[in-house]
Deep mutational scan, measured.
Amino acid sequence: SSQSQGISSSSTSTMPNSSQSSHSSSGTLSSLETVSTQELYSIPEDQEPEDQEPEEPTPAPWARLWALQDGFANLECVNDNYWFGRDKSCEYCFDEPLLKRTDKYRTYSKKHFRIFREVGPKNSYIAYIEDHSGNGTFVNTELVGKGKRRPLNNNSEIALSLSRNKVFVFFDLTVDDQSVYPKALRDEYIMSKTLGSGACGEVKLAFERKTCKKVAIKIISKRKFAIGSAREADPALNVETEIEILKKLNHPCIIKIKNFFDAEDYYIVLELMEGGELFDKVVGNKRLKEATCKLYFYQMLLAVQYLHENGIIHRDLKPENVLLSSQEEDCLIKITDFGHSKILGETSLMRTLCGTPTYLAPEVLVSVGTAGYNRAVDCWSLGVILFICLSGYPPFSEHRTQVSLKDQITSGKYNFIPEVWAEVSEKALDLVKKLLVVDPKARFTTEEALRHPWLQDEDMKRKFQDLLSEENESTALPQVLAQPSTSRKRPREGEAEGAETTKRPAVCAAVL
């Protein structure tokens, strides 16, 4: 046999249950609850290399294929790409003598399909299967379609040439079993990697079954959420508030809700932002270029202005709740996480202390139980975000031990490091100062900020419009641009040419 590394010779191994799959997660993409704000000051410096380099560890398999027929071997997927077919160049070659004697062998292509993985959001991997055969590759009886790919989820059954000719079961060793999710959700989405997690739940990458488009699904544990919100009269209202707010909003710089499922837990389906959180971008770069800050901040102002015009105060604006559309420097941003939002009543007064301390406005800290506050709290938070983006460190921090965090904020005395700000323009610093004003009545509004000289930049605004146009074009394009080929190089076993392929839609398939 010419099988590559990772293939075992026996096809009769006992199949494990899916609970053996491991679970991976990374930083929070968007969480309903406010958790302790991640610290920006503690960015690790590059460490000196050791005298002796450690040995390379043996790579762990990321997936496993269990053979369902004699003549096929099990495969431990270690590499990122595997070709399957009769050709000797394939990493998994159909060359077992037992297999060659079967009637089905002649229906398999020289290069029938490939399984591979690509880097997705949060640097996690996504597994795909890609059909290159004349007679078809099927996943859970659905045709992939020649020249098309679809994501592979845990426990997928792979069939060759005929939908009933099941050859492998695919085990993704990095994700959960699909069966743990409600059927209504599974009918519409293929669940994938964990993108982030918080005290009350997690955010998962998923794929729409009909279109193969990526989405983010925010899962909120009702049990954990009820415990964490025990002081509230009705904890469920917080989730329902977020859903109702998101459904009503329609702005290019605000995250869109696509679906909602109320089962044992809450499942909020949101558009996916491939670039992750602004927080991670700031930490990764230490600070952002001023031109990049301007492009992002302009969009934040437009989003918050839209919220305020619609009578909504976000109340928890922070870099973790600003998501980026891509890994590119120039990209769209979207505001997310409306769990603490407040729809303005007639009095415009709110007395609930919520939000993240580092970003809270002075009037929030001094008015607990005594007075109210209004939309100006969001403008203060925007000032803190702009400060961080321009400088790479927070204006107020618990680690300045000589003054408490509350006193720093209520006095408006931010930590100004001259040598850092020497590289920032006077106009940018002036806008920061106009937003970090203790008196909410004297603080800049979103309208005033948008009129500030720093943002009178036609090149930046043109760039934003171009990015918007690109997004609109990409969302308007159909996901499947061509029909699967019906040509046949070899006959199917026991049926006429093209008899099955043309009847089945290529579900969740995307043209390369």
Results as ranks from 00 to 15, higher is better:
N374K: 08
Y296I: 07
R504T: 12
G355V: 04
C331N: 07
F260Y: 14
T446P: 08
V368E: 04
G412Y: 09
A499D: 13
S391G: 03
C389S: 11
S469E: 11
I312R: 04
V283H: 07
L278Q: 02
I254C: 07
T445K: 08
W380E: 00
N250Y: 14
G372V: 11
A510M: 09
K461S: 05
L272V: 08
V364F: 14
S485N: 04
S367Y: 14
A496V: 08
T347I: 13
V366P: 15
K289L: 11
A263H: 04
K434H: 14
Q299R: 05
P252I: 13
L467I: 10
W380M: 00
P505R: 04
K334E: 11
A449N: 02
V424I: 12
N259K: 08
Y266Q: 13
F464R: 02
L360G: 14
Q483S: 02
N472Y: 08
T501N: 02
L249M: 03
L288K: 03
E471S: 08
G369V: 09
D466S: 09
I254L: 11
C379P: 06
L467R: 10
D439N: 10
K289H: 12
M350K: 09
R504W: 12
G494S: 03
F260P: 07
E329D: 08
G345A: 12
D466V: 04
R490C: 00
K247T: 08
K258N: 08
D330V: 10
H399Y: 08
Q402R: 09
I335M: 14
V507M: 11
Y414H: 09
K434V: 03
M300L: 09
E447T: 12
R287I: 13
V511T: 12
L455V: 12
C508E: 13
E346D: 10
N321L: 04
L349Q: 15
Q465L: 12
H308C: 11
L429F: 14
P505A: 14
T356Q: 02
C389T: 08
I245F: 06
K294V: 08
L477V: 03
E493M: 12
K256A: 05
F338W: 01
V384R: 14
V377I: 04
V480C: 14
S404V: 07
Q479A: 01
S325R: 08
Q327K: 05
R400P: 07
D457K: 12
K413G: 04
E271R: 12
R375S: 12
Q479S: 07
L386V: 04
R462D: 13
Y393W: 05
L468T: 00
T445F: 05
E320I: 00
P478E: 02
L246F: 04
P478V: 03
P394L: 10
Y266K: 09
T292H: 13
N285Y: 14
T445S: 12
V283M: 06
I243L: 10
L278E: 01
E363V: 03
G369N: 14
E426D: 10
K289N: 09
A376D: 14
P319R: 05
C253A: 15
G498V: 05
S474C: 14
F261L: 04
E471Y: 04
S487P: 04
G355W: 03
A499T: 03
K334N: 14
Q479R: 11
R375D: 13
L467A: 01
F297K: 01
G275I: 01
T410I: 10
Q299S: 11
C354A: 05
Y267E: 11
L302K: 13
K247I: 14
D430N: 13
C354T: 00
M350W: 01
L344E: 04
L512R: 14
K434M: 12
N310H: 12
V432S: 03
F444Q: 05
E458K: 14
A376E: 14
Y414A: 03
I257H: 08
L302F: 13
N310M: 15
T292W: 11
Q479T: 08
E320Q: 08
S397D: 10
R315V: 01
S469R: 11
E320W: 02
V403L: 05
E290I: 08
G494E: 12
G369D: 05
A428I: 00
K256L: 13
Q479K: 10
G412E: 08
R488Y: 13
M350E: 03
V269E: 11
V368Q: 11
